[in-house]
């Protein structure tokens, strides 16, 4: 029982941080904190992929000197390699995911700047409250100019 849990210790740690990030992204009222939670969530996905690519007793997927191609480029086969390497594909995928994450984060921050200009606050509950006020004022306005309020 303990073996199974401890063998996958890194996954447990990753899932733990992931859930913390998810919880912050959902529950925080401060918009910056929500973005921080979102970033944590995305970063743990990168950790998850890198963990997937791990091969037992292998090194990072960067060729060591004695594995450098000697003949024609690409003539090396996996069987000829002197060292074991981790799977490089998930690393490459995560490079793309990191770029996507940076784009999302910067767009989110830009939106927060605009929200701060428009509402003078970055707290979600205060934004909601001021939206409700605007809505009520509009409804009252409409009622005054005639016509019954429809539901």
């Amino acid at each position: 029982m303990w073996d199974i849990i401890l063998e996958r210790g890194s996954y447990w740690a990753i899932i733990g941080v992931m859930m913390i990030g998810l919880y912050i992204a959902f529950s925080a009222e401060n918009l910056i904190k929500r973005l921080v939670g979102l970033s944590m969530f995305q970063t743990t996905i990168c950790l998850f992929y890198v963990q997937l690519s791990n091969v037992a007793n292998a090194t990072a997927p960067i060729l060591l000197p004695d594995d450098m191609p000697k003949g024609a480029y690409g003539a090396e086969r996996v069987a000829d390699l002197a060292h074991a390497y981790s799977n490089p594909l998930p690393h490459v995928l995560m490079l793309t995911a990191i770029v996507v994450g940076v784009a999302t984060l910067s767009l989110g921050l830009a939106l927060i700047v605009r929200i701060n200009e428009a509402y003078a606050t970055i707290e979600a509950d205060e934004i909601r409250a001021s939206d409700v006020e605007v809505q009520l004022a509009e409804d009252a306005d409409a009622a005054r100019t005639g016509g019954e309020v429809v539901i």
Binding site: F48, Y49, L52, G108, I112, Y119
Partner: peptide, 27 residues
């Protein structure tokens, strides 16, 4: 209407979470 800004921000959080869930599944 300034309410477009919080709407876009909520969409950004939800949409990114959705895409992240998709990536976990693919992984």
């Amino acid at each position: 209407d300034r309410r477009a800004l919080p709407a876009a921000f909520d969409y950004l959080i939800m949409g990114t979470l959705g895409a992240s869930f998709y990536v976990i599944g693919v992984g």
